[in-house]
Every structure is written in C-alpha cells, then in structure tokens.
Amino acid sequence: MSIDLLVLLVLALIAVGAALGMLFSRNTVYSVLFLVLVMLTLAVLYLILGAPFVALAQVTVYAGAIMVLFLFAVMILGPQKLAGAGGPIGWQRPVAFGLTLLFLVEVVYAFAAKVGKLGALSCAEAGFGSPAAIGDLLFNRYLLPFEVTSVLLLVAAVGAVVLTRE
C-alpha cells in the first residue's frame, strides 16, 4: 500500500465521518463545524490531486467565508438543539428516503455498467491545476460560462440587497 493510498483512506474516513456527524448532530453549531471539517478534508484531497490553487480556493471560499456566514446565521437565530422530526416539514422524510434510494440505485448501476471498462489512470500533465493553467482555462475555453456565472452571482447579490431594503 502506498503512502498516497493510506492518506486517501484516512482522509476519506474523516470526511465521511464528519459528514455523518453533521447529519446526526443535534446541535446546529456542531453541525456547521462538522461541515467545515468536510470542506477542509476535501481541500486536502485536491492538494493530493496536484491542484493547490483549487484546494486553497476551497478553503478560502467555503471554509473561510461561506461557513463563517453559516455560523453567523446560526448564532444570530439562536443555536438550538433540534427536537426530533415532525412539524411542518414532516412530510419530507419519506420523500428523502425515496430519493436516496433512487440515487443509490443510480450509483450502483453506473458503477456496474462501468466495471472493467475504465482505462488505466494517467497522471495529469505538468502544470495542471496551477494558477496559470486555471486562469487560461477560465478566460479562454470557458469564458462564456464564467461570465454568465459572474452575472448570475451579481444579480443574486443585488437581489439580496434589494430584498433586505424592504
């Protein structure tokens, strides 16, 4: 077993464990923190895959900004311990089970259909995932989707400001 595989297994264990912790924690603040841990583990996975820029962008944007806002919202609303299921969203539980089952079937099917057909894995070429390579991709090959996304985000930001004004 190589060191990479060992690190990968440990990280996967932490990520899945933290994700489960997030789902089953009764305290919303702990849930948020477990989600932060998942984000950080994913960042380390990107780092192992040779994409430091993506890894650090993941830490800055998700762990550093978005999750802090989550925590902020949870604290302002009052972190409360969840009291079991039920209430107005009680009907969502059976729906969630159905959708999860569907997803699992899909994953198993996709996996079964692909077994034995996957080619040998090749290493990414040198420079892959470097800031220059990502910039080149974003501003040449994927310029239109990139710009459309930025306009969408701008509209969302303006919308948020307008909604809070009322």
Binding site: P52, L56, T60, A63, V68, L71, P131
Partner: peptide, 17 residues
C-alpha cells in the same frame, strides 16, 4: 508554494472560527 498569497488569505480566513 506557487499559491502562497492565496494561502495567506485562506489561513487568515480560518482564524475567525
């Protein structure tokens, strides 16, 4: 590291926790 400046921002943003 070739993303040192981003690293500074990333680590700095974790301090708030």
């Amino acid at each position: 590291i070739n993303v040192a400046t981003l690293y500074i921002v990333a680590v700095g943003s974790l301090a708030v926790y």
